[in-house]
Design a protein around this nucleic acid. Structure first.
Lengths: 201, 201
DNA sequence: GTCATAAACATACACTCTGCATGCATCTAA
DNA sequence: TTAGATGCATGCAGAGTGTATGTTTATGAC
């Protein structure tokens, strides 16, 4: 019986190796960015060789994409978990926003998902990743609030995009150390302003 | 008298070469991104060798930075030129936003300034570039509108950041072919909502 | 259990790219 | 006109990516 080579199934070996590589890659991507991280550096940190990396991922962007998918899934799960079952659309929207900001406070996440991700994978590919993990939450929330009369009947797609841009910027600024209270208050004011908007006749 | 080597001053030579290199680099950066553009490709397109490139720029990021500074300067100039002299703060804000979106409609500009720029140069370096070319316009406009009572007394820094994130996202979506009218209406609604906000007492 | 096959992983190689060092051509200034 | 500086080209060393090939470990039929 080998101590440093216990018999493991291939499925287990694969899962463990992928996790080791992704963990090592994540910390380097966060510290030095996608372009600043070399595949030798990743495998050194994981304690393996580049053969393992290129066996499990077709190229360097693939492991970056895998890391981002994991992050996006965790963010989506956090938002979903924070959804209050029977709340009105406005409270649901604010709860989702709060959960999003909390989830994005995990160190490195803003850089991965909001800075390096769009540049390295492209904006469309990144949207696809987020869509795969239930990013339609915000669009759904906006539409529900509009159906409810809480939000004005603006184009839902445009309104959702602008609101999400706002939340993403808030996440970035918060990760840069800006005061959370300022951003919470401002974001709420913007949403409140929309909900109280007197319709031009 | 040489036909293909007319006598030119060094200053002129430098200016022309820098412009040729930056033009070639810009089109490639727009088409393939910063990471996807090689220095051999840049100098091939410019019809020179890498010696010229590395004589005028210390490294690849330097020419990228130079291209972005030129773009940022043009955007800032366009916004400044559209500033109505005696308008009220709200109209000035909307005019500036409109000018910003028009300036960002120049092909490739959104990718350069909003996608590849932050990833390749870092968010702080990019902020510095924009600050050098009078990006304080928005912050000033917001503060003026707040002093005027048009915008509520929220933290100016946070409000400015969120509004600018909104405009940047609008510019990106418009360059992806989304309908301008939708975004214009939505952005105006958000600002209008803020200006009409009933203060919580 | 054993053996053929496939999967997991390591090693070696070819290619490209970046940045610098060196050398030639052109301009500047006395 | 000529010494020195500047503009630009050429050549080279180091690093990185992706692939081809080799070696080890697991799987499944018998």
């Amino acid at each position: 019986m080998q101590v440093d080579s216990p018999r493991r199934s291939n499925d287990l070996r694969t899962a463990e190796m992928r996790a080791r590589l992704m963990d090592a890659a994540r910390s380097l991507f966060v510290a030095h960015g996608f372009a600043g991280t070399s595949t030798p550096a990743i495998v050194d940190r994981a304690g393996v060789t580049r053969g393992a990396l290129y066996h499990h991922f077709p190229d360097k962007t693939a492991i970056f994409r895998a890391v981002l998918e994991r992050e996006a899934a965790e963010v989506a799960a956090a938002i979903l978990a924070a959804d209050p079952p029977g709340a009105n659309p406005l409270d649901a929207l604010l709860a989702g926003a709060s959960a999003y900001l909390a989830a994005m406070a995990v160190p490195g996440r803003t850089r991965l998902l909001l800075v390096d991700g769009p540049a390295a994978l492209g904006r469309v590919a990144l949207r696809q990743i987020e869509a795969q993990h239930g990013d339609a939450t915000l669009l759904g929330g906006v539409k529900a609030a509009q159906a409810d009369g809480t939000l004005p009947p603006l184009p839902a797609q445009a309104l959702t995009s602008l609101l999400s841009a706002m939340f993403e910027r808030a996440a970035l600024d918060l990760s840069d150390g800006h005061p959370p209270a300022d951003y919470l208050a401002t974001a709420k004011a913007i949403i409140l302003g929309l909900s109280q908007l007197r319709q031009p006749h």
